[in-house]
Nucleic acid binder design. Structure first.
Lengths: 238, 238
DNA sequence: CGCCATCTTGAGGTCTATCAATTTCAGTGG
DNA sequence: CCACTGAAATTGATAGACCTCAAGATGGCG
């Protein structure tokens, strides 16, 4: 993990990369830095000159409202390029925050233009990652707009499970308030809903983690279909 | 309109195109076809071999649930490339539906690869349109997850106003059920909420259209900030 | 042991969905 | 010209989901 670049692994999911492509991608991850949980890597309103690759930990894009409401717009896991979404923006529109201790590599946005000029394969891979992110966002709209809390939370857990590799047991280093801000629910209601899922025998919680006891039941309940995740081979393991 | 290609106009918003780029883009719009309102241009589950440029009318991507619930995932206006989001998918995940009478041009997906190989400028423009779409989706998540009905609808109307060019009076060829399916609300509640906006003196409705009487008041109410739309010069007119 | 953040649980209130009845209006045919 | 029709919009009443406020429980950590 430390040896192969995170981002190369991630991009390999989408395209067959030539050695020259790999070389270009590795350049993005030369400047690894550590940020403790809670750090704002990039604040709303600041000039959007840099992107980041995420190597370890979880990060999120958070929108703050004047009245104190909050919304987590995006959840980044290792391998993703963060803030790529704001390629066309002059200023950051939301905060990029380390949700856990994080290792990330900042790089100037011009580097992306160099990638595009150098390799059509990379351009294609970049577009594929963007469309994959769009698919995630789209499912989240369905989730938030149309599903009641139990289904919404169930769907979220299944998505995480798959994005983290498919293991039925995984760490969930987010407090209930953050989960609420991700799903458009209050922290109190997250607590009640998790409790419902536990009592229904669908999940189990231990220190900082979740185990999906009945993934099929959960999928069925929440209308989850992992096609949209664009993962190769999707069978869950543990 | 009929002479300059719709899609070239749209892409020009994002990049300075060389003549050779324009030539490539125009190729996408050779096969203009008419589809009456209600036509399913591409059904969920069918192989995703073609994209479409939209030249006239409104189209939407609609997800149908087994229990009859519906969600409009995306609203396409003239100039956009439709279904680009599913570049990486084997099968369409949702229906692409003509919401009004529509003129659109189907083209095979391989054409996109040709564009990428031929021009880094076009690759960049393509990525910019994708990130602009992501910004739209992101704002929609905020809207649906965090705002009550009045703000949600107000925000939607302001976004439409801007996307349609900024004129305060515009056609709105969607019935209230469709608007509800866009915003995650019931048609009944859309009716009540529109009525509230009218009584508050914020909007006015005539046959098939809306006029924003107090765009600033509406922006203020709904927390709208048009930055995310990536439009050059955003001042509203009329 | 005490402190602080987080989670849990209860009670009451608000927002939105659902069901159902009524109105409006464009289209159609007598 | 008018009655009929069907889709869409309006309006009222009721129910359910979720929020907010507030009080207690839990658990890591100095």
């Amino acid at each position: 993990m430390a040896e192969t670049s995170c981002i190369v692994q991630h991009f390999s999911l989408f395209s067959d990369l030539a050695d020259s492509d790999v070389e270009l991608l590795v350049q993005l991850e030369l400047d690894a830095r550590e940020y403790p949980a809670g750090t704002v890597l990039c604040a709303a309103g600041s000039p959007a000159t840099h992107f980041f690759t995420l190597m370890q930990g979880w990060a999120g894009i958070i929108r703050h409202f004047p009245d104190g409401r909050r919304q987590v717009l995006d959840l980044y896991l290792p391998g993703q390029i963060m803030r790529l979404r704001e390629f066309g923006a002059q200023q950051a529109r939301s905060d990029l925050v380390a949700l856990t201790d994080v290792v990330a590599c900042p790089f100037p946005r011009e580097r992306v233009d160099e990638l595009l000029a150098a390799s059509a394969t990379l351009a294609r891979a970049l577009i594929l990652t963007l469309t994959a992110e769009q698919a995630l966002l789209t499912e989240r709209i369905v989730n938030v707009a149309r599903r009641p809390a139990v289904e919404r939370l169930g769907h979220f857990l299944l998505e995480l499970c798959s994005r983290l590799g498919g293991g039925l047991r995984f760490d969930l280093p987010l407090n209930q308030e953050l989960i609420g801000d991700l799903l458009g629910l209050s922290s109190v209601h997250i607590s009640r809903t998790l409790s419902k899922l536990r009592k229904a025998g669908l999940i189990e919680q231990d220190d900082g983690g979740v185990r999906l006891l009945d993934p099929d039941g959960l999928s069925n309940l929440s209308g989850f279909n992992e096609q949209y995740l664009c993962r190769p081979g999707g069978s869950k393991t543990d």
